[in-house]
C-alpha cells in the first residue's frame, strides 16, 4: 500500500477519535475504586475503633502519606502519556509522600514511646500488610493500564512504574482504614515495600503493554 493511499484511509477515519487519557483514567478509577472498597469491606473490614482512631494524628498521617503518593502519581501518569513528555521536574512531586513520612517519623522519635522500635516496625500485622496492599492495588493497576494504553508514553516502563505507584497509593489508602498499626516506622517499612513491589510490577507490565 503506498503512503498516499494510507493517508487517504487515515483521513477517512478522522471522525473516530479516542477520549483524552485523563478521561480514560478517571473512568478506570471510577470503576475500580468501588471494587477495591468492596474487597476491603468483605474480607478485612475497617478497624473497629475507626472513629476514635481518627483523633490520632499518626492514624490520619497514613492517609496523608498514601494520598500524597497516589495523587502525584495520577498527575504524572497523565502527563507522561504524551509522546513528547519527559519526567523532568515532575519527579519531585513523588518526594511529597516520603517527605510527609519522614516528618511523621521525626515527630514520633521526639515523643516518649511505650513500645521499642522493633516492636513498632513489626507491629501487629506486618505479614498481612504488604500482601494486602498489593492485592488491593492489583485491580487499580489493571484499570490504570487499560486507560494508559490510550496514551503514547516515550518510556513505557517508567509510565508503568508510575501506574504501579498510583495503584499502591490508592490501595494503601483503603488498607489504612483496616490497618491497626499507626506507627510511622511501620508505614515506612511495610507500605513502602508494597509500593516498591507495585512499582516494579507496573514497570514490567508497562514495558510490554504501554508501547505504542
Amino acid at each position: 500500500m503506498d503512503t498516499d493511499r494510507l493517508i487517504q484511509a487515515l483521513a477517512a477515519d478522522n471522525d473516530q477519535r479516542a477520549r483524552p487519557v485523563s478521561t480514560q483514567l478517571a473512568m478506570a478509577l471510577l470503576v475500580t475504586l468501588p471494587v477495591v472498597a468492596a474487597m476491603l469491606l468483605v474480607t478485612l473490614g475497617i478497624r473497629p475503633d475507626f472513629m476514635s482512631a481518627m483523633r490520632n494524628p499518626f492514624f490520619d498521617a497514613k492517609f496523608l502519606v498514601t494520598l500524597a503518593l497516589a495523587i502525584p502519581a495520577i498527575v504524572i501518569s497523565v502527563h507522561l502519556s504524551k509522546p513528547e513528555a519527559s519526567l523532568g521536574g515532575w519527579i519531585w512531586l513523588l518526594l511529597l509522600s516520603p517527605f510527609i513520612l519522614i516528618v511523621a517519623l521525626i515527630v514520633e522519635m521526639t515523643m516518649p514511646q511505650r513500645a521499642p522500635m522493633m516492636v513498632r516496625i513489626i507491629g501487629r500485622n506486618s505479614s498481612l500488610c504488604s500482601a494486602a496492599i498489593t492485592l488491593l492495588s492489583l485491580p487499580i493497576l489493571g484499570g490504570a493500564m487499560i486507560a494508559l494504553r490510550h496514551g503514547a508514553p516515550s518510556r513505557p516502563a517508567i509510565a508503568g512504574a508510575l501506574a504501579g505507584l498510583m495503584s499502591a497509593g490508592l490501595g494503601a489508602t483503603f488498607y489504612a482504614a483496616h490497618c491497626a498499626d499507626d506507627s510511622p516506622l511501620f508505614v515506612a517499612t511495610w507500605y513502602t515495600l508494597a509500593a516498591l513491589v507495585m512499582a516494579a510490577l507496573g514497570a514490567a507490565i508497562g514495558s510490554k503493554v504501554l508501547r505504542y
Binding site: 483524552p20 487519557v21 496514551g151
Partner: peptide
C-alpha cells in the same frame, strides 16, 4: 517508507494525546 507509514498510523491513533 515502512517507517513513515508506521509513524503516520501512530500519529493517527494517538492524536488525542496532542494538546
Amino acid at each position: 517508507e515502512d517507517i513513515v507509514q508506521d509513524i503516520l498510523l501512530a500519529v493517527h491513533l494517538k492524536r488525542h494525546t496532542w494538546d
